[in-house]
Design a binder for these strands. Structure first.
Lengths: 166, 166
DNA sequence: CTTGTTTAAGAACGAACGTTCTGATACTTC
DNA sequence: GAAGTATCAGAACGTTCGTTCTTAAACAAG
């Protein structure tokens, strides 16, 4: 909290006044992160006819953000919560599940409608795994382009699956 | 440390005597985990002609272990370190990098030798991402079979890439 | 100007935690 | 059996950290 006060220029009073305690602050950050960062990142996925470019846009948005903040970086707050706080906190666990469901749904929307529903479901679940893997790696790698290369591989593989399903 | 003493039946004295401090204990655990758990998990990959079954074996070993310990579970210690300790600890960061390299190398060994080297490299890097994603998810999901389904998808996609490369 | 309310800065409190110390008990070795 | 060593349980110490209290300055309303 001392670091936070120093870094923000705010005061302990204000923070405790606004958020009650550290836990409340964390939850508020979590909610804000979902509203702002996640929503921005999935925006490319939610366009009508987002398609594979939309999926690529999701990855690129997050990678560019990581690059701008600095690598090795903060990763994804929800991804971090998945390994750090969710196992000990039922509420956060539920929010993480919710987030993963949302992400999967967005991916599914972006995948070609002509795919069999089971295939779309399968691939969207896969993309969630791949995304979480990428954000985990983003916490130890200092090279944004290696992340981009991996994202590209993921996209290629998805494309091949789609071609193959026809 | 109190919890640890209670859970192990050991004593503070012994722990501090053997490991110096909590950090030393963590590093020792990290090393032991790599020696035992990781080595066991990658064993299916290191057989001559491990092939895709070897890769499937790696995933199944870790999933079965998670299932035995209980889901949602501990995940992978190295994977957890990737998001928790590595960003603040140069030594651990280096060990995590080392681990990822090892994993990639094992995957590469298991992939068909007839693939172009660049493709093997690409796919092995992809498998590291996919694995880390899976272990992250394993910390919030209570269903081992959903992990198995995702591992299966990953394998399918790899198989398709291999077929396509020929 | 005065009074009441908000904001700022730091001290202070209490709990948690990593670590060490104390004193006693068991165990080895001669 | 004696002497030295290891092992144990718990108290105790020092620090960190989350949180609250104190005090004073800035501001608003009458």
């Amino acid at each position: 909290m001392a670091d936070l006060v120093a870094a923000t220029g705010s005061t302990r009073q204000s923070i405790y006044g606004d958020f009650g305690n550290k836990d409340g602050l964390y939850r508020a950050c979590f909610a804000l992160y979902r509203e702002e960062v996640v929503q921005t990142a999935v925006a490319p996925l939610t366009h009508e006819d987002a398609g594979l470019d939309g999926i690529a846009g999701y990855f690129e948005t997050q990678i560019a953000r990581a690059e701008a903040i600095g690598l090795p970086g903060l990763g994804c707050l929800v991804g971090n919560a998945m390994t750090e706080t969710a196992p000990c906190d039922k509420d956060i666990n539920a929010l993480v599940d919710q987030h993963n469901d949302l992400l999967a749904q967005c991916f599914a929307e972006a995948l070609p409608k002509r795919l069999p529903p089971a295939k779309r479901e399968e691939l969207s679940q896969f993309l969630v795994v791949a995304a979480q893997g990428l954000w985990a790696i983003s916490r130890v790698t200092s090279c944004a382009d290696s992340l981009r290369a991996r994202a590209k591989t993921i996209l290629q593989m998805i494309r091949l699956e789609i071609d193959n399903a026809e």
